[in-house]
């Protein structure tokens, strides 16, 4: 009898422990990165580093602003491409497509999510980079093709399955009878989608977009291969960029020889972590508001 109770208690404690690990890990990472970047923070103020735009490690200049902007530009451009297209696809699949088409396309979309990002990178170099180089003159710009736009296109394609998959689940959770209530008033399908399904699913759709964004912020490999990686603030989608994850991935091995380089990279990692944290908290706030609205 006592043994059974003991087992129960132990199981509960153990499970609590395992559940607590991820939460604690975020803090451990945060403080670890902070600790390692103290060397550079002792010499320069955090705002100076964050908003400084010259990156010359050999001269001891470690402005992170170009990388910050690189991340923001590539991510935003990717989401501008990905959100409308993937939402419309999800709406088509959930509301309009016959079951046969839906059941064929869904696994294909999910398969897209499973393709290693380096494969997307290679494909981007072969297909998207030359394409961007070719279309840039039409917009009055010159581009090697290695650019924000190329990164955004590749990233958008990678984010696509996440948003489609999650928003399909969201649409599936909207009761059929609710759609019928709208249809039976003489509404068209599109009116029903716009006023009822999207509104009811708003919170979930925001969550799906936030999930997509989170992935886009941190995606390294494919982006690194097609954005050009020059530490300059991009002025147009045809300019090259250098997002934070690419900076880290490209330089982590060689940083030992240059003083403070280590600290600067750790700070860059910390900034990336902060961006994602702030974004997630913001998304949560919007989500709560949307849930209230969908009542």
């Amino acid at each position: 009898m006592v043994k059974r109770l003991l087992k129960d208690l132990l199981a509960r404690r153990a499970m609590f422990l395992f559940t607590a690990v991820p939460g604690v890990l975020v803090f451990l990472m945060f403080f670890g990165l902070y600790d390692r970047s103290r060397s550079i923070l002792a010499l320069h103020s955090f705002p100076d580093l964050l908003f400084g735009s010259s990156w010359f490690p050999l001269k001891g200049q470690f402005g992170l602003y170009p990388f910050l902007m690189g991340t923001v530009w590539v991510t935003l451009a990717a989401m501008i491409l990905a959100v409308p297209i993937s939402l419309l696809s999800a709406i088509y699949l959930s509301e309009y497509a016959p079951r046969r088409i839906r059941e064929t396309i869904k696994p294909v979309v999910d398969l897209l999510a499973g393709i290693p990002s380096v494969v997307f990178g290679v494909w981007g170099v072969l297909m998207i980079v030359p394409l961007v180089a070719k279309i840039a003159p039409a917009f009055g710009a010159y581009s090697t093709g290695y650019s924000v736009l190329a990164g955004a296109i590749v990233l958008a394609i990678m984010v696509f399955p996440t948003i489609i998959h999650v928003s399909l689940e969201v649409f599936a959770s909207v009761p059929r009878a609710l759609r019928e209530a709208s249809l039976s008033l003489g509404a068209t399908k599109w009116e029903t989608v716009k006023h009822v399904v999207l509104r009811k699913g708003l919170a979930g759709i925001i969550a799906s977009v936030a999930l997509g964004f989170s992935r886009a912020f941190g995606e390294t490999m494919a982006v690194l291969m097609v954005v050009g990686n020059t530490p300059i603030i991009p002025k147009s989608p045809f300019d090259s960029a250098y997002p934070l994850p690419a900076l880290l991935a490209n330089n982590y091995g060689e940083m030992m020889s240059i003083p403070l380089y280590d600290g600067a990279l750790m700070l860059a990692a910390l900034v990336l972590l902060l961006i994602v944290l702030v974004f997630n908290i913001g998304a949560r706030a919007v989500l709560i508001k949307a849930e209230r609205k969908a009542e």
């Binding site: 009761p175 009878a177 609710l178 019928e180 209530a181 009822v196 969908a294 009542e295």
Partner: peptide, 10 residues
């Protein structure tokens, strides 16, 4: 149409 469970629009 009046359904089994009331379906108020959101």
């Amino acid at each position: 149409l009046l359904s089994q469970k009331p379906q108020v629009l959101p």
